[in-house]
């Protein structure tokens, strides 16, 4: 179809949204993302049965944390779509981009840089 979607989106591929961890979502924000969305298969169509349902719960949990730390849970979202829905993928990409543009850059990017260690 060769549809185009906004260039500000960086895709991170996972074998299944069930591989999503709350920490991945938080790390994305720590590393400078202004918004994150998880694109999973249609509910009921998960190849691993419930991976996308679990992902949704983890996204909800991460949204709560983002609210608590002042980043804002609205910067994180979960969408369901099938691999055959190219136009839907573009639509979601545009929708999310618009939402984040309205929200502006992540609040932490306006502040100082930070150190971390492990």
């Amino acid at each position: 179809m060769r549809l185009s979607y906004p260039t500000n989106i960086k895709i991170i591929k996972l074998p299944c949204t069930g591989k999503i961890d709350v920490l991945y979502l938080l790390k994305a924000f720590e590393n400078g993302a202004d918004g994150v969305y998880v694109a999973g298969c249609m509910e009921g169509d998960c190849h691993y049965l419930t991976g996308n349902l679990r992902a949704r719960k983890r996204v909800e949990y991460a949204k709560k944390i983002l609210d608590e730390v002042g980043i804002g849970g609205e910067r994180l979202a979960m969408y369901n779509m099938s691999a055959a829905q190219g136009p839907r993928f573009v639509e979601v990409a545009n929708e999310m981009t618009e939402r984040i543009k309205e929200l502006g850059p992540s609040p932490i990017k306006r502040k100082s840089t930070v150190k971390g260690s492990k």
């Binding site: 938080l26 720590e30 944390i65 002042g70 980043i71 932490i108 100082s112």
Partner: peptide, 19 residues
């Protein structure tokens, strides 16, 4: 997860923290 959340919160406050 907690370390990440605390760092985000402190970045947001403009007060860096090393964990």
């Amino acid at each position: 997860i907690l370390a990440s959340a605390l760092r985000l919160a402190r970045q947001n406050e403009g007060k860096e923290i090393e964990i």
